[in-house]
Amino acid sequence: MATLTDDRAAVATRLRSGLLCAVLSAASFGLSGPLARGLMDSGWSPASVVIVRVLLGAAVLLPAALLKLRGNWNLLRRNASLLFGYGLLAVAAAQLAYFNAVAHMAVGVALLIEYTAPIAVVVWLWLRHSQQPGRATVLGAAIGMAGLILVLDLWSGVTTSWIGIAWALGAMVGAAAYFILSAHAGDAVPGTVLATAGLLIGGLGILAAGLIGVVPLHATTAPVVFQGMTVPWWTPLLALGVVTAAISYVSGIAATRLLGSRLASFAALGEVVAAILFSWALLGQTPAPIQLAGGALILLGVIVVRLGEPLRI
């Protein structure tokens, strides 16, 4: 009886810690859109914003990663494929594909396609690892996707293109890879090491793409204007690197390891809600009542998915 009680307490503690990390990660990631929008409105190209964001995040995390490594460079060599896969898929491909999708289609539609990643995670775990989703997981997925459609408010008339859809699907693959690879690493690679290596590899990958002309690279030192305030150009860049890259990736990896890739991917849908709230505060984009209702559905979907998850001790 005592062992059963201890096991339940361990599960509850793991769940609380995982959800707290997921909320922190979603809020941090959600802040990146409004900050980047301010920079792009002042003359920065999307790729330039992403490069500074991820490389600055890698620089912030580097001391902690080196401390975790303690000179064990064999750890990096043994997990080189994981680190490169994470950096190129979960960081570089996801960000590049998303910004290219936005260049060809409405932002809302691109986001909707990218955030079908949780469904891709469920399908991958089912096909690759025979982890068949239960009824609660399927129901939670449906509720979460319905909420996401309401949050994105796609009834105002949007246009799409096959090229944009293809890029958005690429972003979805990158987002799904983020959750799958974060969970796959387990305890073999410390979270700070995985995040640092991924950001560094991803940032250099995007820089290479810019240098060969895949995406435009340009920046400016003009002040950045937000709702009711104007700040120097380096202020949002610093926040992007420290908060939306360093903190968001480390907390996201921790959440995925505690909750599993399936539940963590659905909890990450809270990023859309966070992005709307930050857009309201920084850009003056007031959410409509239908979007608030969608946010409530997303949270309900996460709870239902949790009910369909096996206990993790």
Rank of each mutant, 00 (worst) to 15 (best):
A2V: 12
R8V: 05
A10P: 03
R14C: 02
L15K: 12
R16W: 11
L24F: 05
A26P: 01
A26Y: 00
F29Y: 08
S32A: 13
A36D: 03
R37H: 14
G43V: 01
S48N: 02
V49R: 03
L66F: 10
G71L: 08
W73R: 14
W73Q: 09
R77T: 09
F84C: 13
F84Q: 10
L88F: 11
L96H: 00
Y98N: 03
F99W: 11
N100G: 03
N100C: 12
H104M: 10
H104W: 09
A106T: 09
V109N: 08
I113P: 02
A117H: 04
A117R: 01
I119S: 15
I119D: 09
W126S: 11
W126G: 06
H129T: 07
S130Y: 12
Q132G: 12
A136R: 15
L139M: 15
G140N: 11
A141F: 06
A142V: 14
I143H: 06
G144S: 14
A146S: 15
G147K: 04
D153M: 06
L154F: 04
V158F: 11
A166D: 13
W167R: 07
L169P: 03
G174I: 05
A176P: 02
A177F: 07
Y178M: 14
F179Q: 11
A183G: 07
V189I: 14
V193G: 08
A195L: 07
T196H: 06
T196D: 09
L199G: 02
G205A: 13
G210V: 02
G213D: 08
V214A: 13
V214T: 06
V224Y: 04
V225D: 15
F226D: 04
Q227K: 09
P232R: 10
P236W: 00
L237Q: 05
L238Y: 01
T244I: 00
S248P: 00
G252H: 00
G252N: 01
I253G: 01
A254L: 14
T256N: 03
L259S: 04
S261E: 15
L263R: 11
L263S: 07
A264L: 02
V272A: 07
L277D: 01
S279W: 00
G284L: 04
Q285V: 08
T286L: 11
T286F: 06
P287D: 08
A288E: 15
A293N: 04
G294W: 01
A296L: 14
L297R: 02
L299C: 11
L299I: 15
V305F: 10
G308L: 08
G308K: 06
G308Q: 09
P310W: 12
L311S: 14
L311P: 01
R312W: 09
I313A: 12
I313R: 14
